[in-house]
Design a protein around this nucleic acid. Structure first.
Lengths: 133, 133
DNA sequence: CCAAAACGTAACTTATCGGTTACGCTTCAC
DNA sequence: GTGAAGCGTAACCGATAAGTTACGTTTTGG
């Protein structure tokens, strides 16, 4: 799951969006950012390590291009995570026996429980941060 | 794009996979990991801040449940990144759409390869090493 | 009441990350 | 050759993240 690391940083995301349009030499990539060129170079190296870009040396230029396969893997993972929940009757796939036991115990003891104050942190927490201006 | 931060850590990913099966109290989540319970608690807090889980207080238990919307946003972003390249010339369009639509979406693939001497860092040899004193 | 259960928080340590500046190595133009 | 262009690497630094132990708080139960 290296693709996750690739998109973990806003600069790297923007690099990927750039390379989505067309392959670019490192210098051209760096020009799109306010940070220093070595910083961009290291981001490109991380992207290489994650397998989401590939590089072609053309003379003294290094041309980077998008390589979407690892990103597709992440997308697939997310689809699995989001998608329809598996049936809890027969054994799904992973070992969740102790888990099901715990759920049963929870449900059993809920008979005398108070109201459920559902609160999703994104709408109440003070730490919703936005980045990538 | 807070969903990215949510899945950036392997422990958090595993927590999400657990909660995909069913909502769980914090202690039951913590039991599935080798790390300490406070560590899991903080991971849960991060997941709350990212909006990918919600919590319901039942007596002295705090039951966490998956909240897939932000993950769907990330999936949509990835689809746009992977998908067919936009026409070159007019303003390219990388915005944010398709949030809940992502759940029921099927995959669409596109294969395009450049005739370059590819050296993608992940599948090829290790990083280029220099060796000199 | 009081103790245990369940959970979050605080303080601290360590590792990693992302940025900077300085520098070295190829390749091209002349 | 020689200088400049293009790019990666090394060394360093501040901020952040993830882990630990210790502790506080609320609920439950005898």
């Amino acid at each position: 799951m290296d693709g996750v690391r690739a998109i973990a940083d806003p600069v790297r995301r923007e690099i990927l969006e750039l390379l989505r349009e067309a392959p670019l030499p490192a210098g051209a990539v760096a020009e799109h950012f306010a940070i220093s060129r070595p910083a961009v170079s290291r981001h490109l190296r991380v992207l290489l390590e994650c397998g989401v870009v590939e590089v072609a040396t053309e003379g003294r230029r290094r041309v980077y291009a998008l390589r979407p396969a690892p990103l597709a893997e992440v997308a697939g993972y997310l689809r699995r995570l989001i998608g329809p929940a598996p049936q809890r009757g027969p054994a799904p796939r992973v070992g969740l026996d102790a888990l099901a036991t715990e759920v049963a115990r929870t449900r059993r003891e809920r008979r005398a429980a108070g109201p459920m104050t559902t609160r999703s942190g994104a709408s109440a927490g003070p730490a919703t941060r936005r980045d990538s201006a």
